[in-house]
Design a protein around this nucleic acid. Structure first.
Lengths: 195, 195
DNA sequence: ACCTTTCTTGATTGATCAATCAATCAACTG
DNA sequence: CAGTTGATTGATTGATCAATCAAGAAAGGT
């Protein structure tokens, strides 16, 4: 792995585990085994490194997030809840310490430069677009005229809001509760849609 | 206003606007017109100041948040959506810059000392408790055996997830979409409950 | 008036921060 | 081989950070 990638991957991990502000450039360099000159050769500023990290997340949505979550799952509605389950597993694996890296960064960065805010938005949009595609694939089961984009955003809302509470309480309860409610809602929609 | 209160109020505002890590003690002192010795006379550390801020939020839920939002609103379900509307107004007033102070802090602080995490959790619990009380007050309209605590958490999830997306996109759309979906869900529940 | 407690002043500390820089090294090109 | 570009080294910079401290002012009780 070349130095640039090593720095990028390390930053990705540390921004997720400690947050952007709480991770110092020196921390990254030490963990990556690189020198400060190398980092600033590839990334003009710490913030540019953050943007690169967010680009990596954007590019990783399909291969790293969706592909594993949807392996062997064809039904579009099932896929939505399998995706949510992958976030649940993330909470389980980390004792509810780490949830969604994008969400954490989105709320940490209060006055983001346009580049950063834009990349955060792009990540949310990508996520929502894939969920919307699932909902569109299940259009025959949903009430006619259902706004699938709106509903896809609500799925993201459910995930992020649930993760936030579960991380805070260090308990899966709030996340599970939220997904349960979403499942109930969508099942009511499909009942209404196929009636 | 005494010095302690002046420092506390200033910190409250700045932690909300810039986040905890991005707000320096010097920033707070300058804005509050106080000296560092005064701050450290009342609060042993910056973190203790954060805890005091979170305690102030906890104590302010009823008088500062709910009372204004619920003025002249008696119906418990209406109250829930009036509460959500107050967060919407907050987004409107700040061009979608600031949403829920607690949510922002909850996701910013990744490895919180127990005191901080506990106070964040207490704030969420207080919020949820009041929403649960609304739902319990509308129990006759909800399906028998509805888990009102679970549903109250889902209301918080909707608010926090919606605020996160709206802040990131600098648009009310995602927040409004989320609240719309929640309203639709709850209306389906009340239809089922009174049927 | 006198003492005690509470509060305020503001300079100072050492640590840590992001970022810089000249120097050197490695890899490729013609 | 010579020349050029790209990558790496690591010490260093000045700024900023949270926190400290000795000194003194204000307030209140007796």
């Amino acid at each position: 792995m070349d130095t640039r990638t090593k720095i990028l991957v390390t930053a990705m991990q540390m921004f997720n585990e400690r947050g952007y502000g709480a991770t110092s450039v020196a921390d990254i360099l030490k963990a990556a085994g690189a020198n400060s000159g190398s980092l600033y050769h590839f990334f003009p500023t710490k913030q540019a490194l953050l943007v690169a990290v967010l680009e990596a997340y954007r590019d990783g949505i399909e291969p790293m997030l969706l592909a594993p979550a949807w392996e062997g799952v064809a039904d579009p509605i099932d896929r939505i809840f399998k995706l949510l389950e992958s976030y649940r597993q993330r909470l389980v694996n980390t004792d509810c310490f780490y949830g969604c890296p994008i969400g954490s960064l989105a709320l940490e960065i209060h006055e983001p430069d346009p580049d950063v805010r834009e990349m955060l938005a792009v990540n949310f949009e990508g996520w929502v677009r894939h969920v919307k595609a699932c909902l569109d694939g299940a259009a025959d089961r949903l009430p006619a005229g259902t706004d699938t984009l709106k509903l896809a955003r609500f799925v993201l809302t459910t995930m992020e809001g649930g993760v936030m509470q579960s991380r805070t309480h260090r308990t899966l309860e709030a996340f599970d509760n939220s997904v349960d409610c979403l499942r109930d809602y969508i099942s009511k929609l499909t009942k209404e849609g196929t009636k």
